[in-house]
Nucleic acid binder design. Structure first.
Lengths: 136, 136
DNA sequence: TTGCGTGCAAAGGTTTTGCATGGCA
DNA sequence: TGCCATGCAAAACCTTTGCACGCAA
């Protein structure tokens, strides 16, 4: 996706205006239509794929039933190096910088021969806030 | 699913014989066919749903592309946690059980308050085979 | 006998793909 | 101008659902 197009611009605009939460293809499609610049579903998927590849956007698969979610990532450089945690309850995205976790990448690479791609890997689970509210 | 049927028996048999790894509906279907007792896809899904509900089987959702994975759980108490690694090159899904990785879950829970959901968490990257073929 | 499980086929939804068209640089 | 992105429609895929039939208890 080397070229700049109205479709791409509008799509990124929407994602940037919703940094704080994840969205999906349906919502994106609805927004673009409401803006007077409807974009084909295939194009949206293709653009999102490209944005995920370049690390600007994160893709989340919450479960098999729901459609995939996408969220804009502000600092793509920094985000290449740490892990991300996504809360399945509240949707919060946590950027986790931790030397002990950095060890994981090394361990898996050295002992299991697998090279982790941080731009596409996300830990799913429940954040501390949601755990507390569940218990009390 | 109160009744015992040949289909159910055979399905559980297969899952029990593959406790150490994950499997999916395709593999189950192929096995049952090879055993001379083909079972409809709908039935397999229905039985699996029921087994998951009762806690005998665990379901893993890898991503939108791959079909769901299932694994027999021997002992609900001491069920061994594991991680899934998926190769972005060849699509191979690796089932990884490693004490050092189990430490990660504990570390993240204790130090970062985040409880990882293993049924939805997948590490994406490149497997050893693909890394070798890329370099050589 | 009663009710539940099964099988088939069809439907459901999300995502991908092929191909012609139109736009970016 | 040449290549790339778009759009449409169709396809691919996994999974669910409806309904009639057959088997378990």
């Amino acid at each position: 996706m080397k070229y700049n197009t109205v479709q791409k611009e509008k799509l990124i605009e929407f994602l940037m205006n919703n940094k704080d939460k994840h969205t999906n293809v349906q919502e994106i499609s609805a927004y673009l239509r409401s803006e007077g610049t409807p974009v084909g579903t295939a194009t949206i998927y293709r653009q999102l794929d490209s944005l995920v590849d370049s690390g600007i956007v994160r893709k989340f698969v919450i479960d098999g039933k729901t459609s995939a979610c996408y969220q804009y990532i502000e600092n793509k450089q920094e985000c290449r190096e740490h892990f991300h945690l996504k809360c399945l309850c509240c949707g919060k995205l946590i950027h986790l910088e931790c030397s002990q976790l950095a060890e994981i990448s090394r361990h898996i690479a050295e002992n299991h021969g697998f090279e982790i791609d941080h731009s596409q890997t996300v830990f799913y689970g429940r954040c501390s806030a949601c755990r507390k509210s569940d218990e009390g």
